[in-house]
Design a protein around this nucleic acid. Structure first.
Length: 602
RNA sequence: GCGCCGAUAGCUCAAUUGGCAGAGCAGCUGGCUCUUAACCAGCGGGUUCGGGGUUCGAGUCCCUGUCGGCGCACCA
């Protein structure tokens, strides 16, 4: 019984076996009707049609289908293809197999054009037809004289139905097509500018008009040469005297007036960028923020450096690293979790104001505010403290907002305003926690008392937590989660801040702040620990935790300690998530601020 | 890692109790010299995510795998 159904299902949809055997003419409808008839026959009278009468035809089709599927699968299976291509004696530094496989499958794909969706087939045929007629669908260059933006800028207020006499050559992607009998309209897009092109019988003649209608699809890139005019409806346009395809698209564009599914937006950002102007705008906003940050630093005499992303030891933060290996050095390497230890070496070396903007990698879960690969700004300044660094951090954010949006009050994606202007609220961790709790909490408060408060509030905390982690846990639930306006939280338990110096007036807290914006942590700043003896004790303790299996503990970086032993000036340091800064300024999720976030392969 | 939800045409989505898989846009054919998501007429297009099962019959029910979303946990 299973065999019958399987055979029926394999034969019909897609029609691949028929195509593969060269019988293209067989209409799909017939296949469908026959399938339904078969189903009905069996439905009405299960015994009426003996299996042996149905099976031969079906099983033949089924075998063909299976054969084809097997072949196709084999064509993309790494093992079977790679053995044809990969040299038998590959050296250990050669690229891995996948590179070869991709090459093979691409070649393979081009060899079987029928096995693609209808709309792609149609476009492929148009391309082939162009080539056959001696028309290059992908010309090397075209004589573009103006960008669409330049045309728009030159004629900002042209009255309706006006001819300018300006002859231009413009290019763009065809976003909309409106073809009437002897006059065709197309909306071209180039970057973030759109302009209308008009192709008329009078302008280009019979042949070129017909070619436009038969050859141009939505999504194609075209070149249009002609006069700048306005249409009878007032639309600024180029009235073509000639036109040319500059790049023929093989895939249809998604519909312009429906939102793309989120997954498609992220996996195929290039489509998102084509279809959704907002996606384009986010990229420009991000670029603007980056430039504003760099400008702010340069105005203050900071030097931009780039420190290693491949590190032999991981450190500078508490996080699990990605591990990789160097063939040449025959050793394990880590993708960095933070640039901190190298930037401090810079300060030791006399680069007294340094910043770096680059990627960090943390081998942890991802959600709406965490990404395994994220951009980080860190900056260090000799003779600065966590106070002056807080002020600088606020200025950086405000200057970025001002540069990109022209105001310290930004409009978020949900339409609400977010005020970043003026001074920002400052709390102390213990003070704000005490207030929220209604009980005095100090660095001396025993862990048992804190566990008692947690229980009172029905917070489920790990009973093994010590004072420092408990305070942070309680604070987060009772205070942090309710912060919306930009807020600095200062003076953390010393236990959880191994690279921070103790507070000048209270040795039990660290000179550290976190900056919270719209409820998430945007940045963190410190008066840096520069005492090499204390630093060695702290890092030795981290190494001990690591040896005991704490996967986040830092390794003992002997060279970093050696650098400190040469003397690092008292310094302030700050780390800020760039993706999160974009989130703060726009209200978007982290996956929208990152152009190509990590996703599982399809 | 656990729980819940989802995957249907190129895209965005429907499909009643398990009973002939549809719509809009996109595509193809024809028409239209001022359209703006053009319009009018007609026609194609489906491995309902993969595998297995129940049933006369599965997009729909059951098991399983893959991918995704949300929540929790872990994690700053």
């Amino acid at each position: 019984m299973p065999a019958v159904r399987r055979a029926v299902r394999l034969r019909g949809p897609g029609g691949r076996p028929r195509v593969a055997r060269g019988r293209r003419a067989c209409p799909r409808r017939a296949g469908r009707r026959r399938r339904h008839r078969d189903r009905r026959a069996r439905a009405d009278d299960p015994q009426g049609v003996p299996h042996h009468q149905l099976l031969p035809a079906r099983s033949h089709a089924a075998r063909a289908a299976l054969r084809l599927r097997t072949q196709r699968r084999r064509a993309v299976t790494p093992l079977s293809t790679s053995c044809d291509v990969v040299p038998p004696q590959r050296n250990r530094f050669a690229p891995r197999r996948t590179a070869f496989v991709r090459y093979v499958t691409m070649t393979d794909d081009s060899q079987r054009p029928p096995d693609i969706p209808e709309q792609m087939r149609v476009r492929r045929e148009k391309r082939d037809r162009l080539l056959a007629n001696g028309v290059e669908p992908y010309p090397v260059e075209v004589p573009r004289t103006h960008t669409l933006a330049e045309v728009r800028a030159a004629h900002p207020d042209l009255p309706t139905d006006t001819a300018t006499g300006d002859i231009v050559g413009v290019t763009g992607r065809v976003m909309f097509l409106r073809n009437t009998g002897k006059l065709c309209f197309a909306t071209l897009r180039e970057g973030d500018t759109e302009l209308q092109a008009m192709i008329s019988l009078n302008g280009v003649g019979d042949e070129a008009l017909a070619a436009w209608k038969s050859d141009v699809d939505l999504g194609d890139h075209v070149y249009v040469h002609g006069e700048v005019i306005t249409s009878k409806r007032g639309e600024l346009s180029v009235m073509a005297d000639s036109w040319q395809i500059t790049s023929k698209a093989m895939r249809p564009l998604p519909v312009m007036h429906k939102e793309l599914a989120e997954e498609t937006r992220i996996r195929q950002r290039y489509i998102d960028l084509i279809v959704r102007p907002k996606a384009n705008e986010v990229v420009r906003t991000r670029a603007g923020v980056m430039r504003a940050l760099r400008d702010s630093f340069h105005q203050r005499g900071y030097i931009e450096v780039e420190t290693p992303m491949l590190q032999t030891l991981h450190g500078g933060a508490a996080a699990r690293p990605f591990v990789t290996e160097s063939n040449a050095f025959d050793m394990q390497l880590f993708l960095r979790i933070a640039p901190e230890l190298y930037l401090k070496r810079c300060v030791v070396g006399g680069l007294e104001k340094v910043f770096e903007i680059n990627r960090n990698f943390r081998n942890e879960g991802s959600d709406s505010s965490h990404s395994p690969e994220f951009a980080m700004l860190e900056f260090y300044e000799a003779y600065a403290t966590y106070d002056s660094m807080a002020a600088l951090t606020r200025e950086l954010v405000q200057e970025a907002a001002k540069t990109v949006f022209g105001s310290h009050v930004v409009t978020l994606s949900d339409g609400s305003d977010y005020d970043l202007s003026g001074e920002w609220t400052t709390l102390t961790m213990y003070g704000s926690l005490s207030e929220a709790l209604g009980e005095e909490v100090t660095p001396e408060t025993p862990a048992e008392a804190l566990h008692g408060y947690a229980k009172q509030r029905e917070l489920d905390v790990d009973p093994k937590l010590t004072h420092g982690k408990l305070v942070e846990e309680l604070w987060e639930h009772l205070v942090g989660d309710h912060l919306y306006a930009p807020t600095f939280v200062r003076d953390f338990p010393i236990e959880t801040s191994p690279l921070t110096r103790q507070h000048r007036s209270d040795p039990n807290v660290a000179e550290k702040w976190d900056l919270y914006v719209r409820g998430f942590e945007l940045a963190t700043g410190y008066s840096e620990l520069v005492d090499p003896v204390v630093e060695r004790e702290r890092l030795t303790e981290q190494a001990r935790l690591g040896a005991e299996g704490d996967v986040e503990a830092m390794q003992l970086d002997e060279d970093f300690l050696r650098a400190l032993e040469y003397g690092m000036p008292p310094s302030g340091g700050v780390g800020m998530g760039i993706d999160r800064l974009l989130m703060a300024l726009t209200g978007l999720g982290i996956r929208e601020t990152i152009l190509f976030p990590l996703v599982r392969p399809e």
